[in-house]
Amino acid sequence: MLHIKCPHCGLRSQNEFSYGGDATIKRPELNKEISDKDWDNFVYLRKSPRGKHLELWQHISGCRQWIKVERDTLTHEILKTLKANEEI
């Protein structure tokens, strides 16, 4: 069982959260010319590191806020949690 410290609610079990994937992916800016390559990077390509991974989770059965979690993908250790608008 993962225990995730929601920055709004405190320590909660994994059951209350749903996963939202890599938090470092940035959507291309809409009002600029966007190449196919940019869309490819944004939609499909992922680093998927073994080790530290910054990811989005939603506290869906709690405060319903999106949060950022820094987690080790090899050990499942949760290193840090942040509000969605905070940078690491």
Partner: peptide, 13 residues
């Protein structure tokens, strides 16, 4: 399990 992992072991939920 639903999140990126290289752990080769999962969680009970």
């Amino acid at each position: 399990d639903g999140y990126n992992s290289y752990a080769q072991r999962g969680n009970l939920p």
